[in-house]
Amino acid sequence: MQAAISVRDVTKVYVEGANKIQVLHGVDFDVEQGEVVLLMGPSGSGKTTLLSIMGCILRATSGSVQIAGQEVAKLSERELPEIRLQHIGFVFQGFNLFPTLTVGENIELALDLKRIRGERAKQEARKLLDQVELAAKYDSFPADLSGGQKQRVAIARALAGSPRVILADEPTAALDSQSGRNVMEMMRDLARKHGRGVVVVTHDSRVLEFGDRIVHMEDGRIAEPETEASGRKGMAEVVSMGLLSTNSAEHALRIC
């Protein structure tokens, strides 16, 4: 089966004056359809840069990036927005809903970008909100929703136009644990039921159980696949630092 995202030997170098800062060093990375991949690592490890390259927001300095089988690394800046529109849905840490639009209009705006307009857009928006169990909030404004509800609206918006890939940046960081679980359950359902590739950048240990795979990044590289023993040793260190609960760490190790 074709990978939703395929990243091969990708590097990213930022040039600031005479200085060159390499933030990604030959990254190889695949996301299959129907899979939830958690992208973890310390700040500055290159997670967000990799997410931006996979989301066609940034261009890789070298290497290959395929989205749904289409090579995008060589596309121009002008061509990238169309790839984002066609294939990628984003979920952001801060929800990034449009506060002056109603919930329904937020979804309709995303559909409008994909040239789905009028009554068809309204029907599609209701359907998407129904999927995230917020159909009753169609005419509400984001300010009237809880954090969890806002993130579910953001997920519905990301689904507008049926993209093959969902990229989520810290989607649970601003949510309480129950809301975070609900959001991650939805992410997992998206992947499983609709065959979408889902990548979640997260520091949140509470979401580990919802990932099919955890990819750890460090210093711009994907960390070597861990053996169970070394994995347990590593997780133990994380747990001892108070960053992960014991249950989450156990789950993480099971799926490594």
Binding site: I83, N96, L113
Partner: peptide, 13 residues
């Protein structure tokens, strides 16, 4: 500006 950034990220020309 953040909303416009979101629109651009979503693929709006």
């Amino acid at each position: 500006i953040r909303e416009y950034g979101t629109l651009k990220a979503m693929g709006a020309p």
